[in-house]
């Protein structure tokens, strides 16, 4: 590239847009932040003003605090920040998650944030938006990562739950509390048995329900006094609860973790889990390649994850690509 200033580039505080003087997903307090989604590694508190997607508002408030100044925008709605045109487009990652489109002097950049192409009934499907330059994530950018289809995943989780009931064990399924947990709730068959949730999950369920996502009935674990009630149940808890005394209340139980990392046996066995379900809210390898092709970007900048393999793969396929700097 020439010495011309890039429209978006990486700084200590996050991805910065010099003409617009705003940051995307800043990791430190800044003046103006445009945030893709409410996961804690993307939405940091302390900035003066936040632009967020309308659908993510409730989740953002939980993450950033009630006092945070939020400007919400609908998907596809264009708005200006210091003469730079910005808009949110569904990323299919979690409820309200967005790709950010940034346009200045006729040049269009897309920052995908975290995204997936897999069908997810708890959020809006990924939108394919064309651009000149694409900044993509690369969390699972190796061809070994290819996700189990959603229907098959549902079957697997249901049958694990049923077999635990036969073995008189409570099913404890670890999943990230924002997004993955709700996606699981929508994937399982609630007629199998009662569903219980850890406090962290229940709070987010509430936000999802208030945002208009219908979820099956859940019971907050803390409300249960008689342990017998857990019999035949499915408990959804964040991964941080694994191996803690919190689990003792369930008596005999079987543990599982729903994550893209569970694709690899070593990762599963290291955690000493009974089961691993390969379920991710990120794009798998075919998804990444499909999204990159669909963007028709002339240049691809790669960040977070298996950056070098993806860059090299794209280069060898004749695409201009480099790590985001």
């Amino acid at each position: 590239m020439s010495s011309r200033q890039e429209l978006l580039s990486l700084t200590d505080s996050g991805i910065y847009c010099p003409p617009g003087d705003f940051y995307l997903d800043p990791s430190k307090p800044v003046d103006v932040a445009v945030v893709t989604h409410a996961h804690s590694d993307h939405a940091y508190a302390g900035s003066n003003k936040y632009f967020v997607s309308e659908k993510s508002e409730l989740l953002m408030k939980m993450r950033l605090g009630e006092e945070a100044v939020l400007e919400t925008r609908r998907y596809g709605e264009e708005f200006e920040i210091n003469g730079v045109i910005v808009s949110f487009h569904p990323a299919g990652h979690v409820l309200g998650s967005a790709q950010i489109r940034v346009e200045f002097e006729g040049e269009v950049w897309i920052y995908t944030g975290d995204f997936k192409l897999t069908r997810d009934p708890t959020c809006e499907p990924f939108e394919k938006v064309e651009c000149d330059v694409l900044i993509t994530e690369a969390t699972f950018a190796l061809p070994i990562y290819r996700w189990t289809p959603p229907d098959e995943l549902s079957r697997q989780i249901n049958s694990w739950w049923r077999s635990n009931i036969d073995a008189e064990k409570v099913s404890v399924l670890f999943a990230y509390s924002l997004g993955k947990s709700q996606r699981i709730l929508k994937s399982v068959d609630p007629s199998i048995g009662p569903i219980f949730t850890h406090g962290a999950v229940e709070n987010l369920n509430k936000a999802y329900r208030e945002s208009g996502v219908h979820l099956p009935e859940t019971h907050y674990v803390g409300d249960i006094e008689d342990k017998k009630e857990f019999t035949g149940g499915l408990v959804i808890a964040p991964p941080s609860a694994a191996g803690t005394s919190w689990l003792r209340r369930f008596g005999k139980h079987s543990t599982a973790f729903a994550s893209g990392w569970m694709a690899v046996r070593g990762a599963r066995r290291r955690r000493a889990l009974d089961r691993g379900f390969v379920m991710s809210d990120h794009a798998d390898w075919p998804g990444l390649i499909e999204a990159i092709d669909a963007s028709k970007a002339k240049r691809v900048l790669v960040t977070h994850g298996f950056v070098d393999p993806l860059v090299r793969w794209l280069n060898e396929s004749g695409k201009e690509a480099e790590p985001l700097k």
Binding site: L142, P143, I144, G266, R312
Partner: peptide, 13 residues
């Protein structure tokens, strides 16, 4: 080959 090696190093098997 290099991509296979990347994958193998990650999987370990």
């Amino acid at each position: 080959d290099w991509m296979y090696e990347e994958c193998r190093n990650t999987v370990g098997d």
